[in-house]
């Protein structure tokens, strides 16, 4: 029964899960005290964040089961409560619970003074648009903000105001934002929708039930994978139709990850409210599950 308990509490901490450099996930979830909301892997380090702090772990050390973070950093918060960190992206743009987006300079290891302020509620997700060096962030307040190089909010799309994607019965928050140069996927309370960024208008809306928690482009933008409430991974086409919904074990999914780094292990992994992580070797069916 004690065993079951620990699994219970673990499974409630919504882990972002990456299989970038190796399959040693089990460990990361086991040695973390607080919830781990997001994970990110760079060439040599694994970065994890949860309750207000970012920790970096060296991959080589992790493989040897050495569980000591290389460094731990904390953005300058102004509020009383310790805000959680909800999202990170490659150049380490951090979306946090204090309604702001922080940018961490990985070379110097310090947070930039410029804090992207503008959201009126906490930031769910961030994404970097590499070509324009812009940052996209989606928040609980229902807005997707696009931040320019200078740290100014260039655009603000309030998705819930567009009738085609608004779903008032769920709410207005945006829980996933993904971008690929001109296109942006965002979803959450409103339906998952594909946006053309230059015109800032929705091109297609995907008729998925439930709120989507993470979405990703696949096969050079031809296909879109999305996970959220409900025990399945949805495959959608750009035009707006849902191609397939692949069942998996957890009742609702929090995270989805494609392993593009190695050609041998080209797998899709999905995790959620369960102690299992499903692994898809072929996108169309679940191969096996990793157990904590």
């Amino acid at each position: 029964q004690l065993l079951h308990m620990s699994v219970f509490s673990q499974s409630f901490s919504p882990c972002g899960r990456f299989l970038a450099a190796g399959n040693n996930y089990g460990e990361i979830a086991l040695f973390h005290e607080g919830p781990v909301f997001c994970l990110l892997s760079t060439d040599s380090h694994l970065l994890s964040a949860g309750n207000g702090e970012i920790s970096a772990w060296s991959w080589t050390e992790l493989i040897k089961k050495n569980v000591k973070p290389v460094w731990t950093k904390r953005p300058n918060y102004s509020s009383l409560e310790i805000p959680e960190i909800n999202a990170m992206d490659n150049s380490l743009v951090v979306g946090a619970g204090d309604n702001n987006v922080h940018i961490l300079d990985l070379e110097h290891g310090v947070f930039k003074q410029a804090v992207l302020q503008g959201h009126s509620d906490y930031v769910h997700c961030v994404s970097v648009r590499e070509r324009e060096a812009e940052v996209l962030s989606g928040g609980e307040d229902g807005a997707v903000r696009i931040w320019g190089r200078t740290g100014q909010s260039v655009h603000c799309i309030e998705v819930y105001k567009y009738e085609s994607c608004a779903r008032p019965q769920y709410g207005k928050w945006i829980s996933c934002v993904t971008t690929d140069s001109d296109w942006m996927l965002c979803g959450g309370g409103p339906s998952l929708s594909l946006w053309h960024l230059r015109s800032l208008s929705p091109t297609s809306v995907f008729p998925l039930t439930g709120c989507q928690r993470q979405a990703a482009f696949h096969q050079d933008m031809l296909q879109i994978l999305a996970v959220g409430e409900g025990p399945f991974v949805s495959h959608c086409l750009l035009g707006g139709e849902v191609k397939a919904q692949i069942p998996c074990t957890p009742q609702s999914l929090n995270t989805l990850q494609l392993n593009t780094n190695s050609t041998e292990h080209r797998v899709l992994t999905a995790g959620g409210s369960s102690d299992r992580i499903d692994v898809f070797t072929n996108l169309s069916y679940r191969a096996f599950s990793l157990v904590f």
Binding site: E84, Y122, E140, T255
Partner: peptide
Amino acid sequence: CLRTVRGPNR
């Protein structure tokens, strides 16, 4: 309540 929702699964 300090905040009504928090984290990816609110």
